[in-house]
Amino acid sequence: MSKELVEALDALEKEKGIKKQVVVEALEAALVSAYKRNYGQSRNVEVDFDQQAGEINVYAVKEVVDQVFDSQLEISLEDALKINKAYEVGDQIRFKVTPKNFGRIAAQTAKQVIMQRVREAERSIVYDQYIQYEKEIVTGEVERIDHRYVYVNLGRVEAVLSHQDQIPGEEYHPHDRIKVYIYKVENSAKGPQVFVSRSHPDLLKRLFEQEIPEVFDGTVEIVSIAREAGDRAKVAVRSTKDGVDPVGTCVGPRGERVQAIVNELRGENMDIVEWNSDPADFISNALNPAEVLNVIFDPDNERACTVVVPDDQLSLAIGKRGQNARLAAKLTGYKIDIKSESEFADLATNSEQEPTEQ
Rank of each mutant, 00 (worst) to 15 (best):
K96E: 15
L207Y: 03
V292T: 05
T240K: 14
G248N: 07
P99Q: 08
V258S: 01
I131C: 04
L316V: 15
V251R: 05
V89Q: 03
R254K: 15
A233G: 06
Y149V: 08
V251E: 08
I222V: 15
G333D: 04
C305L: 14
A80K: 02
K335R: 15
A345I: 13
Q166G: 09
V251H: 07
E55Q: 14
Q210W: 04
N263A: 13
V194Q: 02
Y133E: 12
F49V: 14
N57W: 04
T349V: 15
K135M: 12
R227Q: 09
A286S: 15
V308W: 03
D278N: 15
L9V: 13
N263E: 13
K184G: 06
Q210R: 08
G90A: 06
V152F: 02
R238V: 15
I105A: 10
Q112F: 09
D79H: 00
M270D: 03
E74L: 12
E357R: 10
K241R: 14
V150D: 00
P201E: 06
M270Q: 05
E13N: 07
V6M: 08
S124I: 06
P213V: 05
R119M: 12
R148W: 06
H163F: 06
I125R: 10
Q323E: 11
T306A: 14
Q164T: 14
T240W: 08
E63M: 11
D278G: 13
W275E: 04
P246R: 01
E88H: 11
Q52W: 03
T349R: 13
G319C: 04
V196L: 08
I182S: 03
V295W: 02
A317Q: 07
V223I: 15
D312F: 10
V142E: 03
I18M: 03
R119H: 10
K16L: 14
R254A: 13
V194I: 15
V307E: 02
K36V: 10
L347C: 08
P99K: 00
V152M: 00
V251M: 09
P289R: 00
T356V: 13
L331H: 01
R326V: 10
D300V: 13
I145M: 10
Y127R: 05
E25S: 07
W275I: 08
D278T: 15
N350Q: 14
V89G: 09
D311L: 06
Q164V: 14
K241L: 12
I178S: 01
A29C: 03
T249R: 04
T356H: 11
I56D: 03
I261H: 02
Q210Y: 11
A34P: 07
D146F: 03
H175G: 02
E136G: 13
D176E: 11
S239F: 08
G333T: 05
M115Y: 10
R232Y: 10
I338F: 04
V89N: 02
E28P: 00
I283R: 00
E302T: 11
E228K: 04
V150S: 01
I18F: 06
A121H: 03
T356F: 11
L73T: 07
H163R: 12
S239G: 12
E209G: 09
E171H: 09
S76V: 11
D70M: 02
Q108L: 13
G322D: 14
D70R: 01
L203Q: 02
F282T: 01
E4M: 06
P355K: 05
Y183S: 00
K82P: 09
R257T: 06
Q259P: 00
F102I: 00
D242V: 11
V23S: 01
I137T: 07
D271G: 09
I182A: 04
Q108A: 12
N84V: 09
L81G: 08
V307S: 00
